Each structure stands twice: as structure tokens, then as C-alpha cells.
Simulated assay, not measured.
Amino acid sequence: MAASTNGAKPAAASTDVDLFRQSEIAADYVEGLLDILDYDGDIDELVSAGRPVVEVVGGRLQALVGQRGATLEALQELTRLAVFRQTGSPSRLLLDVGGYRATRRKELSAVAKNAVEKVKQHGEAVRLEPMSAFERKCVHDVVNAIAGVESESEGVEPNRRIVVRPVD
């Protein structure tokens, strides 16, 4: 019996050319938003780790990041929709503004290592505060690289969180 696709196309592996095209479409969309908002920023489009990436750098961009990256996450979703509208394919586009994601990745690495230390010290699971998908991925990556512990996401958005526990 064949699986139903509900009219959706099967996901095909994207080439770097396809991914770069997605980043170009996204950069054009973000540039339009910056023009509307009268913000200045330099936009770089690239492909990194098999994902299209758009980076916006410049002064006065904090409002585009928002509290704990909430505005940035919303802008990323809007930009992904703009890419989808032009390509007909979902995108794993990563949008960064003012280096927020790199800075946050370092902070989350410290949070993950601290949780691992607590788990190893006390032998009990540690539940972290709710995080975005980007933040959870950063924490999972750090925890999964350390022997003797594992991580798992639990809960439902927007209260989805990571639990770090000792490996049985």
C-alpha cells in the first residue's frame, strides 16, 4: 500500500545552488523589510552546514532581534514563507541579525555545560527553561558531544524545554 502524500512533493536533497538561491530570495525579502522600516544593514547570503543563511549586520538592529530573539524568530518564519512562495519548497533558512545567533550559541553552550555538570554531580535529571527550536538544537549539540549524559526535548511550544539526564 502506497503512502499518501496529500499532494505534497517528496522532499528532494537541495544542491548548494538551490540553497544559495533560497538565501538570495530571502536576502531580497529582508532588504525590502529593512527599506520599509528605514533600517540600514548590510546583508550577506550564504550556504552553511547545508542550510541557506542570511546575515544582517549594522547598527540599530536590536529591535529586529527582540527580547530573547522572539522578533528574529518571527522574521525568520516570514522570510521562510517568502522563500516558499517563490520556490514552492519549504526552506530551512537561518536568519541572523547583528550576530545574535552566534552570541546566543555561546551562551547556550555554557548553559548546557552547566546542566551537564549538575547531572554528573547529582546523578539527577535537570530541566532547562523553555527555549526556541534554535536554542534547543544548540543545547542538544553540546550535550550530545559529552559522554555519560543525554538530552531530550519535552513539552509543547512555546513551553518546550530540554531535559538533560544521565545515560542509563
Rank of each mutant, 00 (worst) to 15 (best):
residue 3 A to I: 13
residue 7 G to P: 02
residue 10 P to R: 12
residue 11 A to F: 14
residue 16 D to G: 05
residue 19 L to N: 10
residue 20 F to Y: 15
residue 20 F to E: 14
residue 22 Q to Y: 11
residue 24 E to W: 00
residue 29 Y to D: 01
residue 30 V to F: 11
residue 33 L to H: 03
residue 33 L to D: 00
residue 34 L to T: 02
residue 34 L to R: 01
residue 37 L to Q: 01
residue 47 V to T: 07
residue 48 S to T: 12
residue 49 A to R: 07
residue 50 G to M: 04
residue 50 G to R: 03
residue 54 V to L: 02
residue 59 G to I: 05
residue 59 G to P: 15
residue 65 V to F: 06
residue 65 V to P: 02
residue 67 Q to H: 14
residue 71 T to V: 11
residue 71 T to E: 12
residue 74 A to C: 12
residue 76 Q to F: 03
residue 78 L to Q: 00
residue 84 F to Q: 11
residue 85 R to I: 03
residue 86 Q to I: 06
residue 86 Q to G: 06
residue 90 P to Y: 09
residue 93 L to K: 04
residue 97 V to W: 03
residue 100 Y to H: 05
residue 101 R to Q: 01
residue 107 E to I: 00
residue 109 S to A: 09
residue 113 K to V: 00
residue 114 N to P: 00
residue 115 A to H: 03
residue 115 A to F: 09
residue 116 V to I: 13
residue 120 K to G: 11
residue 125 A to W: 08
residue 126 V to P: 02
residue 129 E to C: 04
residue 133 A to F: 11
residue 139 V to C: 12
residue 139 V to L: 12
residue 144 N to E: 14
residue 148 G to I: 02
residue 148 G to Y: 10
residue 149 V to Y: 11
residue 149 V to A: 04
residue 150 E to L: 10
residue 152 E to D: 06
residue 155 G to M: 09
residue 156 V to P: 00
residue 164 V to E: 00
